[in-house]
Amino acid sequence: MVKIKEGYVMNAREKAEFERVDALPRKKEGTVAYYFKAQTKYPPRIYLFMHGEIWCDRNRRPMGLHHAFPFLKRPMNREEIEYHHFDIRLCYHQYEDWGKLIYAEEQEAERLDLENPGTGSAFLAQLKEFQYKYPLVQTLSPVRKLAAEETPDEQSELVRSLIENGHHYSVSEIGKMLDEEQNGLKRLPVLILLRELYRSLATDEPKPLQITPEEVEHKALVSANRTRRNLVRRVYKQNQLFALQEIQLKYPGYTEEMLQADLKSKRKKERSIKHKPVLDYRRSQLGKLAKRLREDNLNEVEYQKTCCQIVILQNAHDLRLPIPKPVTYAKQTEVYSFNWKTRETVIKSFVQQANSTGMNHEQLAKIHEQMTGSNYSF
């Protein structure tokens, strides 16, 4: 019978769906398929696919069992068929421990024996034989035991050995060494190297690490300094008066000068302010005139004339006056006005066309109308 949590009250929609599925005929039989998944970067495990006869190969693709074959099958008992009758998706179980798997299957084998005597016992005997063929607890090769205290030479020798031969270990072996080191001596260079090995073996194909013992020592030094600096700043923030005494409990010989050095933060690089390029006609002219005043050796008359031009342009820009461009053909002068923010390239293009041969006011007026009436001209 399907298991419903005690005290759970179904709403109208759930009750209607339950009654609809409950009214459907039950399957007369079903199969449980057992698959073994060898260790990759995850531990080895055994998958149990309920109603294995309806599982397609593509359904097992997420588990990495697309091309796999079951090593054992058994019929489902009536209680299993009834329970999984209400499944809305394909159902499977996974085990990483033979003890838990056998305990669970013993319960199902008893029910099989009640329905068909001898079936469950025969299946259970077959299942227990496979626990030696498919071990779930990875047998690790003996790892070098760490002494209670090691000299720096022994630590350096261990680092060099791991760099040269670490890629021959499996992921589980490196993981066990990492646990032992974290719970034991906690040597920073060894921990850093083991983490690099674990990351390399778990993500890529086994290959020697491209790192030197000097680089490992440098990383360890940087990490130790960062850890000390973070501790100092945290303690100082909580208790400034007795911060030095509290830090000295962790780092004997810690001085006031070291405290000030650790509290000093690096000055952040000031971000340069980005300026948009000057494109409009008047400001471009103002920039050119200002450059002329700075760099050219002007006489008094030219200097005064340039200053007057700057004042006139600046006032017109501040008042947002239109830009006038007088054009004379056959002693007839017309003034063509442009918006005060018109780009310099547009004005130069207009002047170039006005100076072309055969141009008259009628043609130029059409060009001016196209320029001022287009959204892409400014």
Rank of each mutant, 00 (worst) to 15 (best):
I4N: 09
E6M: 09
E6Y: 05
G7P: 06
G7A: 08
E17V: 02
E19K: 06
A23I: 01
K28D: 15
T40H: 12
K41L: 08
P44K: 04
L48R: 07
H51R: 14
G52W: 07
E53Y: 11
C56K: 12
P62D: 02
F86M: 13
D87A: 10
L90K: 12
W98G: 06
E105G: 10
E110A: 15
L114H: 14
N116D: 12
T119Y: 01
A122I: 02
L127F: 08
Q131E: 14
Y134Q: 02
Y134K: 02
L136D: 01
T139E: 14
S141H: 13
S141M: 05
V143T: 14
K145Q: 12
L162S: 01
H167E: 09
S172V: 07
I174P: 02
I174R: 03
K176C: 08
Q182A: 06
N183W: 05
V190L: 07
L193P: 00
L197C: 05
L201W: 03
D204W: 05
E205R: 14
L209E: 04
Q210G: 09
I211H: 00
T212V: 03
V216K: 05
A224I: 11
R226H: 13
T227V: 01
T227C: 02
R229W: 10
N230L: 15
V232T: 05
K237Y: 15
Q238M: 11
Q240A: 15
Q240W: 12
Q240D: 09
L249W: 09
G253W: 07
M258F: 11
Q260W: 12
E270L: 15
H275N: 09
Y281G: 01
R282G: 03
A290H: 03
K291C: 08
R292T: 10
E300M: 11
K305H: 03
T306D: 05
I310D: 00
A316L: 04
H317A: 11
L319H: 11
L321D: 08
P324Q: 07
P324R: 03
V327R: 00
K331C: 09
Q332A: 02
N339H: 15
W340A: 07
H361P: 04
Q363G: 01
Q363R: 13
L364D: 04
A365D: 08
H368D: 09
Y376R: 01
